[in-house]
Design a binder for these strands. Structure first.
Length: 654
RNA sequence: GCCCUCGUAGCUCAGAGGAUAGAGCAACAGUUUCCUAAACUGUAGGUCACAGGUUCGAAUCCUGUCGGGGGUACCA
């Protein structure tokens, strides 16, 4: 039990009879923001006093009088308008730390009521190279699963891959027309990726050609509207008109920008002899690709056979990246898996009156919203929403979850709002459906990463670049060690891989989930401040102490050596160590991994201070040496476990 | 038009209605006979976009204004 939980239970007893809103009060007991107010503070006397019509300090007096905390804290202090400040007794800290020393869970309790979660994350389109846009979902989802499991929940990870979309139409078309048989035999993944890119480029080219006059028209139209409005507005337009004009100007600028980029895209093909020849020969490629996709969906024998042949190669490709990220899934049930359920779910929606026809499409409408959710197109094809409903149905039947978490970009919040409302109408009402949304990955220019076209950074290239940059730092630091370099070439390369991947993951996890994320190598690979490297470094320093002191830490843990907390640095470290469980709880309360990263940063900080101020191997006495070794051990294990919950590894030496 | 989000130090960002708003970069000033200086210590830096409101108490909740981003019927 965390110290906070113990405090709450004591307060619960003391509050009995005083109010019937005990839980509300208990929520106002927190770790102190400022050490000078002690370790914990209870803030409920002000609202409670108001409610009871009594002075808050008087209420505080009464509560303090009833509190039995002598074994846990020093005398409570009533401060300011009615805060109760608590300082945990060192003896209690020592007792809890001692328990953690021999506990594999570091004295973090499991939850009383375990739940079953289905966590939907990553979800790349196979057969398309994974890019930087996939990193957030993958990393956050993985961290949530690990953390949920650690506290005793059942977390079922399910990778809802896109294995049934238009990209297969492209590959099918490419395979039938452009395949290099030898290249395919040698390395199917690489060849399929080439085919995808080629067909994609040709489709975009013809699409772009068709779009060109449309864009030009649009620009003329926008120019005219702007001119007309400007004239109408006169010399002194009011505020609202000015705003409208400004909007028209930015719209026009955007359209011009789009035209420019389209023209350069077309020029790239036109300027390439081979590409322009292919483009001319495959003028109808756009519709042909859609036909290949429809044939696949209609179980065309050849296309289905080819799809089954391509799929394993595509899955191997994404598995390789997951292997490097050390991300695993319990299930990988892609869109194709739900193909048979799409028709029936639409029928059900219609039969129950949840959906109806509109403009030839099948739609679900929502109160107060003009936009419906489409579940079947005019041409009979199903959509994203249809698959998601079918998927939810399957998950409910199969896993019987208490909660389903969708770790998906916040731009899809409307989709999930629709999806969840519809699920409620279908009768899925005793399950928590949660869109764990996250901010967009932005480029250096502050614009969202393009998913359809443009130069996206491939995920693998990103990992390589991060590792390469870290490798340089590893070499530089190892060379600069006072007693000479310690790492072999192999060691250095392993450290670079672990630290590099960690840097990428941590940069993402330490950011508040809902805010946008600016992709930057420098930020990801920074070695200072709130970074994985800082924690890994703290961990490595502990390991270094054990190595140099030739410490048998297993023996020490069971030796019954006592922990001493005489210096401020030791006490601060101890207090921080004991708040690991609270940090995990906070992190899970709204699925925010950055709560855990903040905690670990704070812990590593406390350790660094301790490291500077408290000699371990050269401690004044043997007793103190053993105590400090135990603190080092607890710190290392907490850092390791905390990072592990985020999907990040540590290294013994760096 | 409607809906959703964001606006906090020069920069990048934390901040569960609680006390004097915090980190990291960058700046400045220190710390290597000592367990890894990928570190530590200190200084400086703020009208929490603006205006009202609710509250004992607001960066946080509500309303409005200004500014940024996103979404908005047959892509996923």
């Amino acid at each position: 039990m965390t110290i906070l939980a113990t405090l709450k239970s004591r307060f619960r007893t003391a509050l009995a009879g005083l109010t019937d809103e005990v839980d509300t009060c208990l929520d106002l007991i927190r770790a102190s923001g400022d050490p000078k107010f002690g370790d914990y503070q209870a803030n409920f006397c002000m609202p409670l006093g108001k409610k009871l019509g009594r002075p808050p300090r008087e209420v505080a007096e009464e509560v303090v009088g009833k509190l039995e905390l002598d074994d846990l804290c020093g005398p409570p202090e009533i401060a300011g308008p009615g805060f109760i400040n608590l300082r945990v007794k060192d003896a209690r800290l020592i007792e809890q730390l001692t328990a953690a020393v021999t506990d594999a869970r570091l004295a973090v309790a499991t939850v009383e009521q375990p739940r079953t979660y289905v966590v939907d994350y990553s979800g790349p389109n196979v057969a398309k190279p994974m890019h930087v846009g996939h990193i957030r979902s993958t990393v956050i989802g993985d961290a949530l699963c690990r953390t949920l499991r650690f506290v005793g929940h059942k977390a079922i990870s399910d990778n809802h891959i896109g294995d049934w979309g238009t990209q297969f139409g492209m590959i099918l078309y490419g395979y039938k027309h452009f395949v290099d048989a030898k290249a395919y035999a040698d390395n199917p993944v690489q060849e399929l990726a080439r085919l995808y890119r080629l067909v994609r480029q040709l489709v975009d080219y013809h699409g772009g050609r068709a779009k060109l006059p449309v864009l030009k028209d649009k620009i003329t139209q926008q120019e005219n509207v702007l001119k007309q409005r400007t004239a109408e507005a006169g010399e002194k337009p009011d505020k609202k008109t000015r705003k409208t004009l400004r909007k028209l100007e930015t719209d026009l600028a955007e359209t011009r920008e789009a035209l420019k980029s389209l023209e350069s895209q077309l020029a790239a093909v036109d300027g390439d002899a081979l590409l322009s020849k292919l483009a001319a020969e495959h003028a109808e490629i756009g519709t042909a690709v859609l036909q290949e996709t429809s044939k696949l969906h209609a179980s065309d024998e050849e296309n289905l056979r080819l799809w089954k042949e391509f799929l394993p190669a595509c899955e191997d490709e994404i598995e390789r990246i997951y292997g490097r990220l050390k991300v695993t899934f319990d299930h990988t049930l892609g869109e194709s898996f739900y193909n048979d359920r799409l028709g029936p779910i639409v029928d059900e929606l219609l039969a129950k009156g949840i959906a109806r026809e509109s403009d030839g499409a099948t739609c679900v409408f929502f109160d107060g919203q003009d936009v419906p959710m489409l579940v079947r197109k005019k041409d009979g094809a199903f959509l994203y929403a249809t698959t998601d409903l079918a998927t939810l149905g399957y998950r409910m039947e199969t896993f019987r979850p208490d909660a389903v978490l969708y770790v998906v970009d916040h731009r899809q919040s409307l989709h999930f709002e629709h999806l969840f409302t519809t699920a409620g109408r279908l009768g899925y009402d005793d399950v928590e459906l949660k869109h764990v949304s996250f901010g967009t990955v932005l480029g250096d220019d502050g614009r969202p990463f393009k998913t359809r076209s443009g130069d996206t950074v491939g995920l693998e290239g990103l990992l390589d670049e991060a590792v390469r940059r870290v490798a340089a730092i590893v070499a530089e630091n190892d060379d600069a060690k006072p007693s000479g370099s310690e790492l072999s070439a192999v060691d250095r390369s392993n450290v670079a891989e672990t630290v590099g991947i960690a840097a990428i993951k941590y940069a993402d996890l330490s950011q508040a989930r809902t805010s946008d994320y600016v992709f930057s190598y420098d930020k990801m690979v920074a070695t200072r401040g709130n970074t994985a490297t800082y924690m890994q470094y703290a961990y490595a320093r502990v390991r270094s102490i054990f190595r140099r002191g030739d410490v048998d830490i297993d023996a020490l843990r069971t030796s019954g050596a006592t922990i001493l907390l005489d210096s401020p640095a030791e006490r601060a470290l101890a207090m921080e160590l004991l708040q690991f469980g609270e940090a995990i709880e906070l992190s899970l309360a709204d699925y925010r991994p950055n709560q855990l990263t903040s905690y670990l940063f704070e812990l590593a900080n406390r350790y660094s201070t301790f490291f500077e101020e408290c000699p371990v191997l050269k401690a004044e006495s043997d007793e103190l040496r053993q105590s400090r070794l135990l603190l080092c051990d607890l710190t290392a294990r907490t850092l390791q476990k905390g990072l592990e919950l985020l999907g990040i590894d540590v290294v013994d030496q760096m």
